[in-house]
């Protein structure tokens, strides 16, 4: 079987040296083809004496398998080399522009409102809605703002044509989201944790800083041990999350008939971190919202016993927040529908 060793050596050498797939194919025919050297040897087995045939057959088959494996391995190597050679010749322009996939924009007020809703939801506040055409009762009386109250001056009201109702008074476009304090207490009772984002209206001339149509977010928390300190805590948490950085809040006395004590809340200027700059008029603080401990008249109007429950409410303007955040200088853009504005907030 010296021949066999020679054959193996020769074959392996030739395979090793093969440079291309066609020449490898030729070799495969030469050794393993129908008339190939190994095939011929296998075919000639039957001529061997029986005592040698078995052994020789085994050897031949082992060699055949070995050669087959070697061919297949070499084939893969050569294929890979070929592909690499081909790819290296190809040209492809990756700088050609990507296929245009346009998307629309969501109004920045909607986006911000959702952010606000999400943060409060996570703190267990429910999101409540109420009518935009509201009665004087809910808009004023229920909130401890009787007729002739000077506070009605602060809220230039749009009145709806029509006759007043005995209990409800006249219809107005709600001047704030606060009517929902009483509505929500009537509906859900206490304890209560809710916010009401929504559209409000003031009968005042528009300019870059004033709109007759804008949005507020009302908030209310009624429970047993709810204090000014917790209002400070919740608002600090909310604003810090919203702005993505630690924000400080402070209170000043403020007057809203539906809260007592009544406060204004400022937060530390985001630009200068409270050091004082142009944006905050050198005070270090930015005026943000009105708030306070819910007035006992309002609790009673909502059917909640002020001896058992106490809580607070707040209300802030969404437009002001968005304007401050993005440096928008004219409030009229929000309802103006100009796509050059809308599209900046994709």
């Amino acid at each position: 079987m010296e021949n066999l060793d020679k054959l193996k050596k020769e074959a392996l050498q030739l395979i090793e040296k093969a440079k291309s797939l066609p020449s490898l194919k030729e070799l495969e025919v030469k050794f393993l083809g129908r008339k190939g050297q190994l095939t011929t040897l296998l075919r000639d087995l039957k001529n061997l004496p029986e005592n040698k045939r078995k052994r020789a057959g085994q050897d031949l088959n082992i060699l055949k398998t070995e050669l087959e494996n070697t061919f297949s391995k070499k084939e893969k190597t050569l294929e890979k080399t070929d592909m690499e050679a081909n790819l290296s010749k190809e040209f492809f322009d990756t700088t050609y522009p990507g296929a245009e996939r346009q998307t629309g924009a969501i109004h920045i007020l909607s986006q911000t409102q959702k952010e606000v809703e999400d943060i409060f939801s996570q703190m267990g506040f429910m999101i409540v809605d109420g009518p935009e055409i509201e009665s004087e009762y809910y808009n004023f009386e229920g909130l401890n703002i009787p007729a002739d109250h000077p506070a009605r001056d602060m809220q230039d009201t749009f009145f709806i044509e029509g006759k007043p109702d005995r209990k409800q008074g006249r219809l107005v476009l709600r001047t704030h989201t606060s009517p929902n304090q009483v509505r929500a207490m009537e509906k859900y009772g206490a304890p209560l944790r809710m916010i009401v984002p929504g559209r409000v209206f003031r009968n005042e001339a528009t300019d870059a800083r004033h709109e007759h149509t804008f949005h507020q977010v009302e908030g209310m928390l009624i429970d047993k041990e709810i204090s000014i300190a917790t209002l400070k805590g919740i608002m600090k948490e909310f604003l810090s999350r919203l702005f993505g950085k630690e924000v400080e809040v402070r209170f000043r006395p403020g007057y809203f008939p539906f809260v007592e004590p009544g406060m204004e809340l400022d937060f530390s200027c985001l630009l200068c971190n409270g050091k004082g700059c142009r944006v905050c008029k050198k005070t270090g603080w930015v005026e943000f919202m009105g708030a306070g401990m819910t007035h006992e008249h309002v609790l009673r109007a909502g059917g909640v016993d002020p001896k058992k429950y106490q809580g607070w409410a707040f209300g802030f303007g969404l437009e002001r927040l968005v304007m401050m955040r993005y440096g928008i200088n004219d409030i009229r853009y929000f309802q103006g529908g100009d796509l050059r504005f809308i599209n900046q907030f994709k």
């Binding site: 300190a229 400070k232 805590g233 600090k236 402070r250 209170f251 406060m263």
Partner: peptide, 10 residues
Amino acid sequence: GYDKIEPVLP
């Protein structure tokens, strides 16, 4: 002084 009231989470 409102400023002396520390923020607290309920």
